[in-house]
Design a protein around this nucleic acid. Structure first.
Lengths: 197, 197
DNA sequence: CTCAATAAGTGCAATGACTCAACTTTTGGG
DNA sequence: CCCAAAAGTTGAGTCATTGCACTTATTGAG
């Protein structure tokens, strides 16, 4: 009874989806703080306890598909085209992630969603933490790319600063320009220590 | 009965102090998460409601003297000795703040305190937020120091990165070296855009 | 000195997120 | 068809935090 992709997992995924859907609907209707976990569980027709078996907390209901952000970051560093430095690759990757989101803006609800996340402190904090959780992995990828020890401080610093730039970029009206200015610091500083790549 | 500023304010300050003391004792005894807000109120011999009239939350009980960190940061930039760049000044200021703490290490409890803050997520998060709240003020001070517009993105980035370095430095065994490596990025990058100071 | 305004403190009930302990149902492999 | 484990349920409980109504003490003005 270890692993098998049966109907069971489908049902589980389905309840999970019901919960995420119910949560999103309610949040957009009334606002995040005006919705209790009980309301969500009720609409998805499950118990509150079940809800917490599927999601680690109220905020997690909103960020359902956070899977491969880490893989994306690591890949952006590892598979960067030759001649592109690591800070440049990260800047482009972050800007692209921003834009990829904007594509979904076809859905009119997506604007509301983004706005809700931005000005609900609980949600923007959670999102920020989610990204910063990838700091160690990103630092490792950078260190490996330049042949530095895995716990090199300079690599950790670049990783953290790059990830922090994300919110700096997001909250500005002119993302491209903001990214350029924020990463100018990092690109020049990095080039001084690592002339190649 | 006694003199000077009314007895009322003295009593208020006294209960506040009792609460902070009781909290610190209990936290160090049992660990932050094993102490309820009721326990603290009981030991200080006040009601829970009173506790929350003095402190905004459970975490705030631990960080009683957080007053003028912002002023210190701004001053470090504004009053830096001639010939010292802004990133250098910030690096030294952060290292100094670190060391100033270490002076209190005469108290053997201080080591425990620092350890507790470091590996209690609720507390390290709170502390981090406390510092990052000064980002805007620091960015403003930097912008003024170089004559840039108050909302200059590069200045905001430097402010954020410098503040973020703090935890990067704190968690490393060799603070001086960590600070040098983390700020190497910033100093070189900053010098490229602002050759003077 | 008195009195009314004010602020500190109290008790209690409530809310809202989250957990725990038992118990029932569903399901899929053998 | 059986059975152990996963999924789900219920209900009670914890814990931080807030609101409300109330008492008590301090103080400043008259």
């Amino acid at each position: 009874m270890t692993e098998s992709t049966g109907r069971r997992e489908r049902k589980k995924a389905q309840t999970r989806q019901s919960l995420a859907d119910a949560a999103l609907e309610l949040f957009l209707e009334r606002g995040y703080d005006q919705v209790g976990v009980k309301d969500i569980a009720d609409r998805a027709d499950v118990s509150v306890t079940t809800l917490f078996k599927h999601f680690s907390g109220k905020e997690a209901l909103v960020f359902d598909q956070e899977d491969d952000q880490e893989a994306g970051l690591v890949a952006a560093v590892r598979d960067r085209p030759p001649g592109r430095t690591i800070p440049q690759a990260l800047r482009e990757h972050l800007l692209l992630a921003q834009t990829r989101f904007a594509v979904q803006a076809a859905d009119p609800r997506f604007g509301d969603f983004q706005r809700m996340v931005r000005d609900t402190p609980a949600l923007s904090d959670y999102s920020h933490r989610m990204w910063m959780r990838h700091e160690a992995a990103l630092a490792g990828a950078i260190a490996e790319a330049v042949g530095a020890p895995a716990d090199d401080i300079g690599c950790a610093a670049l990783a953290r600063f790059a990830l922090e730039s994300r919110t700096l970029i997001q909250r500005h009206a002119e993302p491209r320009r903001a990214a350029d200015e924020a990463f100018a610091l990092l690109e020049h500083g990095w080039a001084a220590a690592h002339p190649d790549s």
